[in-house]
Nucleic acid binder design. Structure first.
Length: 284
DNA sequence: TATGGCCTGTAC
DNA sequence: GTACAGGCCATA
């Protein structure tokens, strides 16, 4: 699923491909995709796209005083309309899975999403919009200390499992299930550990590992575990570097003699090595 | 703060 | 057939 590295890959590619182009038309195929009470798609017609940015897992198309904010959720993909990976019958049948098209003067993009969870939102006041989402500071901003301070300030007050905490976008933003599991494995922390029983040094390690693993994944253009593809329909290649995610019953790549376990935490599957990530309460 | 709903393709 | 995948939001 698209998490920070996958979204960043799409954003970088979009920036190269369509920045400064004129948006000729937005064609809404599935009305459910569009979120705004008054700002209609036609309002964007003829506007020049300034640049494409990322905020957390959201894609931001900046048209100056108005914006499109897109979320791919689990199975959403932005694809060049001639990418071979778009099932031909879907296009032909005009299925709702082809949710909308962005037609620029030189390029046509389709928002294809089999599960139809993704969204496109017309936004005027970006700051207010993201404030309402209560997103934590960006991990890779010019002021990286902000995100760490924000994280450390919040983690003392919750006894939730640490896995739930790092999926909480208001505490640290960008991670999803894949990189949360990978970061906890690198940090040697069991995903069920109550958040407020971890030492400050362990929290700093988790934070640093999350940042590191997602940076590595960006360099590999993301992880295609199930659905994710880039604009051209190509997969990301970070999957081969995953050490726990979706590796239940396989040998741990770190200790090489323990099989990866999978448990449910807060409704999500969590993968961990019981030897490298023993369950311990370190303080009380 | 935990849970169910949104969705549908895939795996069993 | 049925369970499962999970990011976000509304709800209790």
């Amino acid at each position: 699923m698209p998490e920070l590295p996958e979204v960043q890959t799409v954003v970088s590619d979009l920036q190269e491909l369509v920045a400064s182009q004129t948006l000729e038309k937005i064609v809404i195929n599935d009305p459910k995709v569009w979120f705004h009470s008054s700002l209609q798609p036609k309002y964007f017609t003829g506007r020049q796209l300034r640049h494409v940015d990322r905020r957390g897992k959201y894609i931001v198309y900046n048209f100056g005083d108005i914006h499109l904010v897109q979320h791919l959720r689990m199975t959403g993909k932005m694809l060049l309309s001639d990418a071979k990976e778009i099932p031909h019958n879907i296009i032909k049948a005009n299925s709702l899975q082809l949710r909308l098209k962005l037609i620029f003067n030189n390029v046509e993009l389709v928002f294809y999403d089999p599960r139809r969870f993704g969204t496109m939102t017309a936004v005027i006041d970006l700051d207010a919009y993201f404030k309402s989402k209560q997103l934590a500071p960006e991990l890779y901003s010019n002021e990286p200390q902000l995100a760490l301070d924000h994280y450390l300030a919040k983690v003392d007050y919750s006894n939730r499992p640490i896995k739930s905490t790092i999926l909480d976008q208001s505490i640290i933003c960008g991670a999803g299930n894949i990189y949360a599991d990978e970061a906890l494995h690198r940090a040697g922390v069991h995903p069920s550990t109550p958040t407020n029983t971890l030492l400050s040094s362990q929290h700093q390690a988790i934070f640093a590992h999350l940042k590191e693993v997602m940076r590595e994944a960006i360099l590999k253009r993301g992880t295609s575990a199930a659905d994710y593809l880039d604009l051209n329909g190509n997969p990301g290649v970070f999957k081969q570097y995953l050490k726990v995610y979706k590796r239940k019953d396989e040998l741990c790549k770190t200790c090489d003699r323990t099989r990866i376990c999978r448990i449910k935490i807060a409704g999500r599957s969590s993968h961990y090595c019981p030897k490298c990530q023993p369950f311990t309460k370190t303080n009380d």
